[in-house]
């Protein structure tokens, strides 16, 4: 850090207040509590901002599982985290909205969706609607923040990016396209403080009526053959099943080989 740059910067622009909403993640294979991948990327994004004062906010139960996950975020080098205590099965949106409107951050960063519970990814939208702030989803990076306007890079498919400008205060969400979270270190994780704040509870009644089961494997869609003639029907029925060993082209000219590859790439639809 250059101290002089810091000083001159401090004169012209105030410190940017950033709040990151973090949740308890769940490892996809073992189901162990951890820092959620997308939320951790959000914290990483916040830490990469210049002159930002980052606060972490979580709403949920305070137990061993959530503590280990929260320490995962603290281990990224943050001194403290605010935990708005909410029982299991509560609707955390009102409590979070109140906490945010009290804290008045200029930028709120959240992960795209949670790794457990409903995981609908709706929370940032509900907060944005409630607070009346604009929301930008699928962020890859924040380029700069100047005069209350943030310049953002939004991730498009296949690694493409789109530049956006949004007026602050705003809520942004990040997903797997944002840069990966730094390592969570044991020392800062152990030292970091979790400030537990009580809050009013609103129950989420609808969830009780749902039935939740481990995800079933979805059937793969079969290729639909609309046959108009007997021969085509026969062809479709007699077609070699997929994955029955690869095709090997030996003694072909480079052009023929390239043609075969080209055909496969076209079929897969990845050439544009």
């Amino acid at each position: 850090m250059q101290p002089d740059a810091h000083e001159t910067g401090a004169n012209t622009e105030a410190v940017l207040e950033v709040a990151v909403l973090v949740s308890v993640g769940r490892h996809p294979l073992t189901g162990r509590a951890r820092r959620a991948d997308q939320d951790a990327r959000g914290v990483e994004l916040a830490k990469s901002l210049d002159r930002a004062h980052v606060t972490l906010l979580h709403a949920g139960e305070f137990d061993a599982e959530s503590e280990s996950a929260m320490r995962g975020y603290l281990g990224m080098g943050l001194p403290a985290l605010t935990l708005v205590e909410q029982p299991h099965g509560a609707d955390v949106v009102p409590a979070l909205a109140r906490a945010l409107s009290d804290a008045q951050p200029q930028l709120v960063i959240a992960g795209g969706r949670a790794e457990q519970g409903e995981g609908s990814g709706l929370l940032p939208y509900l907060l944005a609607e409630r607070l009346g702030w604009p929301l930008v989803s699928g962020l890859a990076d924040v380029e700069k923040v100047e005069h209350g306007v943030a310049t953002l890079l939004q991730a498009l498919p296949r690694g493409q990016r789109r530049r956006l400008q949004v007026r602050l205060p705003a809520i942004v969400t990040v997903d797997a396209a944002a840069s990966a979270a730094r390592q969570s270190a044991f020392g800062p994780a152990r030292r970091g403080e979790i400030e537990v704040e009580p809050a009013a509870v609103a129950w989420d009644e609808a969830q009780e009526e749902w039935s939740v089961s481990p995800a079933r494997k979805r059937p793969k869609r079969l290729k639909i053959v609309k046959a108009t003639s007997a021969r085509e029907r026969f062809k479709a029925a007699a077609a070699k099943a997929e994955g029955g060993g690869g095709q090997v082209l030996t003694d072909v000219t480079p052009e023929q080989g390239a043609e075969a590859i080209f055909k496969l790439l076209k079929e897969e639809g990845i050439l544009r």
Binding site: T250, P254, G257, F262
Partner: peptide
């Protein structure tokens, strides 16, 4: 790798790639 591949082309990679590039 040939055993694993769904499509394998035996030949000189440089010329096959060049042909593919030209085709695309």
């Amino acid at each position: 790798m040939i055993k694993r591949a769904d499509l394998a082309v035996i030949g000189d990679s440089a010329s096959i790639l060049a042909a593919l590039v030209e085709m695309v």
